[in-house]
């Protein structure tokens, strides 16, 4: 599904050049649950953003279904992000001035979904993440776990092929984090491909593939034998 070859990313700071990625190869197949681990500053987010077309590599190749994408115009990249990708962030990143329903509807607005369908889709998704009673709540009225569930609903709005999550449980107490993880595992079971950045060793073994980054290079790339399923009640 997704293939990157020798991807490099450097930031020119004038006085010095930061090489955030120093040649990374990666293959993600449809249905994969890939976790990216590594120390702080090792280039995890940089890699995730390049995979999510939020940033372009300085060098190297990026293929989606064997089609190179790095030279596509911004409008086309935006369309791919909108229709095929869903993003989940550590700090939820909801629009504070919009309520839960409106937040979930935003990708549908950008994707030009029919107005009459938008609300139904958004309500269904909020139901799916267990928030049908919080539809008109604004982010500041929601707990962290609830906000992240709104964010997941929003990421799912256009029924994406791939979900990119950057430490989705990083800001949550472990119990709530486990709930979110189970949601992602469930989505993956239903066929959604997931790429997730995490610091947590246990969560790093939730997927079927795991890569470890260090200083902009990929240290290891392994298949996970018995994927771990976090227990919501355990901790």
């Amino acid at each position: 599904m997704i293939k990157i070859k020798n991807v490099k990313k450097s930031y020119d700071l004038g006085v010095s050049v930061v090489n955030a990625l120093k040649g990374v190869d990666l293959n993600v197949e449809r249905g994969d649950f890939l976790t990216i681990m590594g120390a702080s500053g090792s280039g995890k987010s940089t890699l995730l953003h390049i995979l999510g077309l939020l940033d372009l590599p300085s060098e190297g190749e990026y293929l989606i279904d064997n089609i190179p994408v790095q030279n596509l115009p911004d409008k086309e990249l935006a369309r791919i992000r909108n229709k095929h990708f869903g993003f989940i962030f550590q700090s939820f990143n909801l629009f504070n001035e919009l309520n839960a329903l409106e937040n979930v509807m935003m990708p549908l607005i950008y994707g030009k979904t029919d107005k009459k369908d938008r609300k139904n889709i958004a309500v269904d998704l909020l139901k799916k993440v267990g928030l049908d009673h919080r539809i008109t709540h604004y982010p500041n009225m929601l707990s962290g776990g609830e906000q992240q569930r709104v964010a997941i609903a929003r990421a799912l709005a256009n029924n994406p092929d791939l979900i990119l999550a950057d430490e989705p449980t990083g800001n949550l107490p472990s119990e709530k984090g486990a709930e979110i993880m189970n949601l992602l595992i469930e989505l993956n079971k239903q066929g959604t491909t997931i790429i997730m950045v995490t610091h947590d060793d246990k969560l790093g073994r939730c997927g079927n593939k795991k890569v470890v980054m260090k200083d902009g290079v990929m240290l290891s790339h392994e298949l996970v034998e018995n994927p771990h399923i976090p227990e919501p009640t355990c901790c």
């Binding site: 939020l54 911004d74 409008k75 909108n82 229709k83 950008y110 929003r154 256009n158």
Partner: peptide
């Protein structure tokens, strides 16, 4: 603006 673009807004939007 970053979030909007992650959700599928182009620079034009």
């Amino acid at each position: 603006f970053g979030i909007s673009q992650a959700l599928g807004a182009s620079k034009a939007i």
